[in-house]
Design a protein around this nucleic acid. Structure first.
Lengths: 195, 195
DNA sequence: CATTACATGTAAAAGGTTACATGATTCG
DNA sequence: CGAATCATGTAACCTTTTACATGTAATG
């Protein structure tokens, strides 16, 4: 399941130009499957070449022609086959966690900033997803809702974990065991202030 | 913060050969920063070339010489500089979530299997991390404990989210809003059975 | 007897990221 | 007046992944 296949999938729902897809990738998809111009445009060109999507150029004034892509029957079939064969990987590459692993070798100030910035980023992600969810009508597919909720839950847990356990890294004298207390909810309180 | 830098960081703690590092990457690191032979061995060769690590070859019978690497002063300095400059990214690329986004286009059986397999994988990750934690002595760095706890909390939240919300995808008639109820704990009950 | 662990690596391919190139329009 | 939005794309670069290559010894 590469960017190309994701584009094909999005085109199953509605016609779109490359820019539209780019926006889609920058909205919800960025939380679990980021992609930029450099991946999307070549992907569309390739899909069109294979006959999986068709293209209609809409002239515009003051801008490049808008190339509106539409999935073909072959494309729809190909996407369903891809879905059936895809291996459902879930890969995390976190330089943040790698850095934290080496916390003992970092200066405390930097470490503190690192944790705080990440926590705020996570809270931003929650707010961002909530905003996306609010923009949805009743016709929004269940898959989108599920994925959004998933991302939101993950980000909240991560933010709470950092808040609850940063002392483990910051207070270097006492060694304690990480807390699992993500049930308190108190720690997400900042959420309401930011939302 | 690439694989090379991670290797350098691990060598700050103790001397190791490529194979040792590979095992380290396959233990805890796989949960947040996976790497294989193909990245590790060239990384070590490169670090040695730059004089950031030194190498002592230990002859063995029936195996290739064991190349034990030790960090140099330059290496230690270089790693701290790398830590100070690194951008703490946290990138997820989840084909699983991408597939689920397109749940409406999948056949229900496959979808159900997809969710169940992922849930079991997540539970395995929790068990796996718990095992690693149990193997640790009191001298284990706080960073490692923090990262392990983080991974465990994430995996548990993900597993619980899937259990609590799969009906959203599976029952196609009624559209409801995803539940945030990861506080119940009931859903992690299977954990004890598997541990 | 087959697989896993040990131990080293290479090399090609695949894939994505980053930066660049272009240019009008609209918003603050 | 500067920045963001709209709209397309290219190309070099960077990294990682995958598969291969080799071979012994212990484990089940």
């Amino acid at each position: 399941m590469d960017v190309k296949t994701c584009c094909l999938g999005l085109l199953c729902f509605r016609d779109a130009c490359g820019y539209d897809l780019k926006k889609e990738f920058e909205r919800l998809f960025k939380h679990f499957y980021p992609a930029g111009c450099g991946s999307i445009y070549p992907a569309l060109a390739n899909l069109a070449e294979q006959g999986l999507i068709s293209c209609q150029e809409v002239p515009q004034d003051g801008r490049p022609d808008r190339k509106v892509y539409r999935i073909t029957e072959a494309g729809r079939k190909s996407f369903k086959a891809a879905l059936a064969n895809a291996s459902p990987q879930h890969k995390l590459r976190s330089e943040f966690l790698a850095m934290v692993y080496f916390a003992d070798l970092m200066c405390p100030d930097q470490l503190k900033r690192l944790l705080e910035e990440r926590r705020l980023d996570l809270l931003d992600a929650v707010t961002n997803i909530a905003q996306i969810e609010r923009s949805w009508g009743p016709d929004t597919p269940a898959g989108a809702r599920f994925v959004a909720g998933f991302g939101s839950a993950m980000a909240r847990t991560a933010a709470d974990y950092i808040a609850a356990n940063q002392n483990l890294l910051l207070d270097r004298q006492k060694a304690s065991v990480p807390s699992d207390d993500t049930t308190s909810g108190k720690l997400s309180a900042k959420l309401e202030q930011r939302a």
